[in-house]
């Protein structure tokens, strides 16, 4: 691939950028750990889709039931 081509320069920007990072390595490590905690631990184990679990495909009926019942309480 020619070194003055757009694709090479585009790739090289990121390649050299990541390779020469100093403080950036620490920041990326923190970002990756954080994303892991947020998406793999918190989302999977602590933040289920409540309606998906409880409404069993009939969300509108479930929510209507909640809205009407709570008015009567």
């Amino acid at each position: 691939m020619r070194k003055d081509s757009f694709i090479y320069r585009f790739f090289n920007l990121y390649y050299e950028g990541f390779k020469n990072m100093t403080l950036g390595r620490t920041l990326w490590a923190i970002i990756i750990i954080k994303l892991f905690v947020i998406f793999v631990i918190l989302k999977v184990f602590f933040f289920p889709n409540f309606l998906k679990e409880h409404a069993k495909g009939n969300e509108s009926a479930y929510v209507a039931g909640e809205f009407i019942e709570r008015a009567e309480q």
Binding site: L23, G24, L27, W28, I30, I31, K34, L35, I38, L42, K43, F46, F47, P48, N49, F50, L51, H54, E59, S60, V63, E66, F67
Partner: peptide
């Protein structure tokens, strides 16, 4: 700026998780 940017990334996404779990009636409505 970069340090702050890196620390702030995805902190807002948790609010969206909370909508789906804690505030599901709101989210549907």
């Amino acid at each position: 700026f970069g340090i702050n940017f890196a620390m702030g990334i995805a902190t807002g996404i948790i609010l969206e998780f909370e909508f789906g779990t804690n505030w599901s009636n709101y989210s549907w409505f």
